[in-house]
Design a protein around this nucleic acid. Structure first.
Lengths: 147, 147
DNA sequence: GTCAATGTAACCAAAATAGTTACATCAAGG
DNA sequence: CCTTGATGTAACTATTTTGGTTACATTGAC
């Protein structure tokens, strides 16, 4: 999973799930089930459980088992940024180097890796900085505004 | 190809190829063949030709056919930024929305798409801004410095 | 006309993500 | 203490994307 190519829709689904739980709790419910969330996301409950398990590991969500089981937030929506969510799902790098290692005898083949890595590090930093700007509270506000 | 999820290693390969051509031309050669480039990149010449064809469409590279055929730069390395290359290969978005459309009856399912799209637009803009900072001349300088 | 390269279609392989089924496990509450 | 409704997780399948390969028509300087 750590060598994956892209977070793809995982960040969208994760933000959707957490925002859903947050709104549901705000309406007075204790916990949300993976089935309820899956219905809103339009996917399989197992996909939600797997994703929420990763978010729990990162300290963003929590779950209860047994009767009256379900999911809850581990922090307020306002205390969770999209960067937190992004890092919780451990996406692979946005850009990858060569699949097969280039010819090290060649000057370009030898030096291109480090050169591009430096650039890609800057890109990832910019991406993270941008994601850090938005909290799930911001997302929920936008969501309710659109309704 | 325009609905792809990630540029992945394509930006790396494209930058590698163009830098290689630039250095080769700087050493007095007129054109570079896809086979020479493929050797340095360690891939199949067809992969290089396909990629360079996209770069040609974007006005970054040019090719000659017949005897003495091969590839050349359409602009100086210093006049090509990594953003130019990135846009030339038309990568899919870094983040995707839901694969299956979420439940529009649900408030969150209805509003989450636009909310996340706004965020993702900001991320893409930051990413592009970062890529625009580096030219292939910068890349070549780093490459030669590492040698 | 020869020949070495591009141009491009068609296909195959590999990797990652998403979706599905199945079932063990848990814990509240009767 | 046992029923019940949920989580936890493994195993499998399907889909998508990317990269690699083969094959062959086309080009144009010599």
């Amino acid at each position: 999973m750590e060598s994956g190519v892209s977070a793809n829709s995982r960040l969208t689904i994760a933000a959707h799930a957490l925002t859903w739980i947050g709104l549901y709790q705000r309406r007075g419910h204790e916990v949300a089930t993976s089935e309820q969330i899956a219905t809103s996301v339009n996917t399989n409950p197992v996909v939600i459980r797997r994703l929420l398990a990763e978010l729990r590991k990162a300290g963003l969500a929590d779950s209860r088992r047994g009767a009256g089981a379900g999911w809850m937030l581990a922090r307020e929506l306002a205390a969770i940024t999209l960067l937190d969510v992004y890092q919780a799902i451990e996406p692979g790098p946005v850009f990858a180097l060569h699949r097969a290692t280039p010819d090290h005898e060649c000057v370009v083949g030898h030096g291109i890796g480090p050169a591009m890595t430096a650039v890609y590090d800057g890109v990832e930093a910019a991406l993270r900085g941008e994601l850090a700007k938005t909290t799930l509270e911001d997302v929920l506000r936008d969501v309710l505004k659109a309704a």
